[in-house]
Design a protein around this nucleic acid. Structure first.
Length: 286
DNA sequence: GTCCAGGATCGGA
DNA sequence: TCCGATCATGGA
């Protein structure tokens, strides 16, 4: 039995927040559900998160670690109810998606993990992305805190640093199933490891400056840049358009939408993605 | 066998 | 600037 003697319990202060919805909504690729818990690794720490009616229990973390890491990662302090009010006022056609996916938060992931993960994600599907990332972690990540409790071997390892990946032969990435993305991964890892990309600046820069920097990386196009900015750099105005969102824009949101470019466009995007991906039949018009 | 996936790059119009 | 072909891989 895992984590008998180390856990932290939080009264859920965000009423609609859903841990399972958030951690399986395609923002991140390292969480799995076991026995009703979301189990995974971020910031080099393995934890299991259990959500019941009255709150969350984070196994493998204490109060200090919750305050330092998980509170921010799970974006517990943002008023999503207010954001839903704002985005549905801008775009009334968002109402169904926003209600359906109300429990989803935008994770605040480590910049490198977000950037690297979404380079791998291009023209790829989520199970394969997860498989590739778990191989990277297993082979090149440092051992994680609480690794002895991990239910999957790869969860016992941190996401590998850019420095670690920069020295990996491209052939190895291909062996892991990266396909043509292997050279992108090598390139991006080296340039980040060299310090060419200033992550702290990207968090705060004018958004088009931030975009420009990420787009200068080979293998990073508009969609990957938007994902990295939204999930890894806290830029909630970014609006990634993948095949699913494209379909939504061509069906539910014909004629364009004022959401794009608005302050919380990325949150709205996540609501749409969550809704359409879990209800493909209902959403897509035939 | 074909189609598809949280797309980007490249060359040519 | 815009458009189409091409790029690996594995599951449906």
């Amino acid at each position: 039995m895992a984590f008998n003697d180390c856990w932290y319990y939080i009264i859920a202060d965000s009423r609609n927040f859903s841990v399972p919805a958030t951690l399986t909504s395609g923002q991140c690729f390292r969480w799995s559900e076991f026995d009703g818990r979301l189990c995974g690794t971020a910031f080099g720490r393995y934890v299991e998160i259990e959500q019941k009616d009255d709150g969350l229990t984070i196994y493998g973390a204490d109060r200090n670690e919750y305050e330092k890491i998980w509170r921010g990662y799970l974006d517990m302090d943002r008023d999503y109810e207010e954001i839903r009010r704002i985005v549905t006022e801008i775009e009334p056609r968002l109402a169904d998606s926003a209600e359906y996916a109300a429990g989803v938060h935008i994770l605040s992931q480590e910049p490198w993990e977000a950037l690297c993960s979404f380079v791998i994600s291009q023209n790829n599907n989520i199970p394969r992305i997860r498989g590739i990332i778990s191989k990277l972690c297993l082979n090149y990540g440092e051992p994680a805190v609480n690794a002895e409790f991990a239910r999957e071997e790869s969860a016992g390892y941190a996401f590998p640093t850019a420095q670690a990946l920069a020295t990996v032969p491209e052939e190895t990435f291909k062996k892991f199933g990266c396909g043509y993305r292997a050279s992108y991964l090598t390139d991006v890892s080296r340039r980040v490891a060299n310090g060419e990309i200033d992550f702290e600046y990207i968090k705060k820069a004018p958004i088009n400056e931030a975009r420009k920097l990420l787009l200068s990386l080979r293998g990073v196009g508009p969609k990957v840049a938007e994902c990295a900015l939204l999930y890894g750099f806290g830029r909630l105005e970014c609006f990634p358009v993948d095949v699913w969102i494209r379909r939504a824009l061509e069906s539910e949101f014909t004629g364009g939408t004022d959401l794009i470019g608005s302050r919380y466009a990325g949150v709205a995007q996540q609501y749409i993605f969550e809704y359409i991906r879990r209800n493909p039949d209902k959403f897509i018009k035939k």
